[in-house]
Design a protein around this nucleic acid. Sequence first.
DNA 1: CTCAGTGTTCAGTG
DNA 2: TCACTGAACACTGA
Length: 277
Amino acid sequence: MPELAEVESARALAHRIAAGRTVVAVHCADDPIVFVDGPTDVAAALQGARIANTGRRGKYLWLELESRPALLLHLGMTGALRTREDEPIQLEGSPAERDDAWPPRFTKLLLRLDDGAELAFTNARRLGRLRLRTDPAAEPPVIDLGFDPLLDLPDADEFRQALRGRRAVIKSLLLNQRFAAGVGNWIADEVLYQAGIDPHRRASELSPDESDALRRALQDVVTTAVSVDARKDRFPASWLFHRRWGRRPDQATADGHPIEHATIGGRTTAWVPAVQS
DNA sequence: CTCAGTGTTCAGTG
DNA sequence: TCACTGAACACTGA
């Protein structure tokens, strides 16, 4: 479920496993959709390369290879990075279910590193994309992204200015990657809930106080989610996140306020009329 | 069997 | 240019 926090978690995992290491073996699935420019060039670029660093902006992450094009990844809706040493995630209230298969199902890219560790990119629904870029942060598609709430959140004045003149509905604007990079459907809903703003409002019509509240909520949600490594079971119990899924009519917040669902900007939106206006 | 869905992109329209 | 809508992409899981 990759939005900013999940992508940052994936980047950190890749960094721990691969930074400073050399790729000794590469396997690319024969998938011309996920490998936008075909798997062959990716395999050639990675084979024998030393991974110098990792980076992220919005929902894109990349592996910088020493003196070669970087590998740029977008996880799509279902993409994930896995390592062979992955600790199983302890699921609350249920026996730890772990899929011990290695490489995992739907592996598109598998790297073996010089210390024996392996890193896999999996993508069941094939909406992820792998590309090669000489300077990923300075080229499309990354260069076209807006501010990243973790990397370069505008100050309060700049944020107010950014909303001014935007006639789009605020929920849609938050999802626009050219505006706020890395914000996806659940982060947008969580931020609007915590800021007390109705998702149908027009961005340009928010008051300065509402703009400030929105900015603070954006910062808080993103930094909190990243600080727990995007582990949903560690998100604060007060978050709408835990109760927004399923689009059932009987859902309510921890406070007992009913949760409504609507389609805004083509996406399912969960919001709480009692606290959002 | 049907359908929603945590992702982006593009064509068509206003 | 901006913004909106709907469709497309591909596939799983409810």
